[in-house]
Design a protein around this nucleic acid. Structure first.
Lengths: 347, 347
DNA sequence: ATGAAAGCGCTAACAA
DNA sequence: TTGTTAGCGCTTTCAT
């Protein structure tokens, strides 16, 4: 007999009717309850029944309907990962890919399905805020939220298990994983000072994000009383072109500048470009350091000294924080990861 | 009276019980059916009832449970976007981000929720193949599938509405959107020939993917009888380091090479690096062209001549193809997008 | 060890 | 115009 007989039921429309527990039960000659027990690996099922059911499942091509299961279990074994980035950044951010992969790996091991959700417009934000409360997702990892983020507020309101990558100021005592941007910036600036530079500037990107403002704070810390606000140029984005723009401004204002802390590698690459165009040699006349240890860093000439971001681990740790909450193990608050300084030729 | 009274019901565990249609109906003094009608914007509801229900919804903080709705509607208003990339590529591929954004924009406009699903391990593939059949997703966009991909097979078996970005050979007459890699490669090679080069080589990456093998085919087309297999170096990935590796091999085998078609910008950048190190001037001694028009192209010195990939539009078109199927408008088969050649300084 | 039946939250067909 | 009711596919008591 053709094993495809029960495979699917093609209805008049041409669409297929999926097999249900009932079909399996019928095929195996048992009740739906018993099928369910087998499905969930519960005890008290005879070997014969189990075998018959396994065979029936294979025969009819049964796949449990997760909507039905979610409905009765009040849980979906799926967790969302929200990326809330202004359009341009999502495409360029060197860390997001690794964060996704790290989180996915951890969730996958725990038998959870990760679903990445993009918030790229007010409409998305609106739809997402509802989606999160709709029971299709048991918890959420939030990447790059900003202060006052409606999604953050929706999550808080729903009491959904959550973990942030990064640390917006207004998340209360929610779980987050991050690096200590301020300490890292302090340290890398100190090393730059140690190379003998006297007029060190900073191209400070994304001051509206915690990472951006923390890196500036670290820079200020390191310079102490020698800090000169004239030497800081703020730019909106962590991008190559913002790096160019920032460096041009700095060069114009302070022609004798001999060191630059760029708040990301992309920014540093842009700065380097302008520096070269202006005929300044790096690291001889100007030392420069970046942040991220992204592919930009190695692509520059000379390669950038920078701060390594453990992006994969950030994703993994965030996933584990959510999983812990799902197991009822509490565990909010911070989780800081190491971010070693990588010293190369640019300073 | 405090408007939070009904907001959520906190149970003994501290977890919250979400409000249901029943709560809304009770609060508004109507039946569940009427609430449902309001929820779905159906006619035949009095203004008073509608107002009372709207108020009740706001008061109790009701968000429809999508698992329940999916169950009865047999549809979820969500579509999956599967990225099946070997680890390293996902992080580096310059097009994926834009494809995601394009698809998300189109789906968002149609009131669909997009969920990106990553297949990064055999385990992921296994879990995903089941997930897709579980009714939580109405359709799927598949990015970078390979021939014999188990996910592709699962989708075909389930009869799930699907659209591919790219064109693996074994998807039958399923919908796909792509550029004509072969024609584009032919064209860009022809232009390179037109600059007077006599010994033109190719660094052919990712021959296991349709894009990779098509680009090689186009190169062969363009050269015709002058094609020399000695001048083709195959490398596994579309990456900078593979570009370096490929260029080194080519240079060693054919020191008098004066033109290179690299099958991606990243590959071209690697080749350029090796060329410079070998003291060859570009474009004077060697002309080089890439593919993708990614950020690599502008970052190179000289900037790369390349083929522009309409990544955002690919994503958007794929989403629309799925949406069309969901509306029962058939529409499988190919949808090819333009990919203009961008001529810059590298050749 | 297994079957029967209730119910998760929602929509839709049918009555009223 | 509205209320009532029967499921959607699954898990889970409670009997047996």
């Amino acid at each position: 007999m053709c094993s495809c007989t029960y495979d699917v039921t093609v209805e008049a429309t041409g669409r297929r009717r999926r097999a249900t527990v009932k079909d399996v039960a019928l095929e195996a000659g048992v009740s739906r309850g018993t099928v369910s027990r087998v499905l969930n690996g519960q005890p008290y099922v005879s070997d014969e029944a189990r075998a018959a059911i396994d065979a029936a499942i294979a025969k009819v091509g049964f796949v449990p309907n997760r909507a039905a299961r979610s409905l009765v279990m009040q849980s979906s074994q799926a967790i969302g990962l929200i990326v809330h980035e202004p359009h341009s950044l999502f495409v360029e951010d060197p860390n997001i890919g690794s964060i996704l992969l790290g989180a996915n790996a951890a969730l996958s091991e725990a038998e959870y399905q990760m679903a990445s959700l993009i918030a790229d417009s007010p409409r998305d934000v609106q739809r997402l805020s509802h989606f999160l409360g709709a029971g299709l997702i048991d918890g959420v990892i939030i990447v790059s939220a900003r202060v006052g983020d409606p999604i953050t507020q929706a999550v808080a309101h729903l009491g959904l298990p959550a973990a942030f990558v990064g640390h917006p100021r207004d998340i209360g005592d929610a779980a987050y994983v991050a690096i200590d941007n301020r300490a890292a910036a302090r340290e890398v600036t100190t090393r730059l000072v140690g190379t003998g530079r006297r007029r060190i500037g900073m191209i400070a990107a994304a001051l509206d994000r915690d990472s951006g403002s923390d890196r500036l704070a670290g820079f200020v810390d390191a310079l102490g009383h020698r800090f000169d606000p004239q030497l800081v140029q703020s730019v909106p984005l962590y991008s190559f072109s913002c790096g160019q723009e920032g460096m041009r401004a700095l060069l114009e204002r302070e022609p004798d500048i001999d060191g630059v802390f760029a708040s990301s590698d992309a920014v540093a690459a842009g700065a380097l470009d302008v520096l070269h165009a202006a005929g300044r040699s790096v690291p001889e006349q100007v030392g420069i350091v970046g942040f991220d240890d992204s592919s930009w860093a190695l692509r520059c000439d000379p390669p950038l000294s920078t701060v390594h971001q453990p992006a994969t681990e950030l994703g993994r740790a965030a996933a584990e924080a959510v999983l812990r909450q799902l197991r009822g193990e509490g565990a909010g608050g911070p989780h800081l990861l190491e971010c070693p300084i990588i010293w190369r030729g640019s300073a």
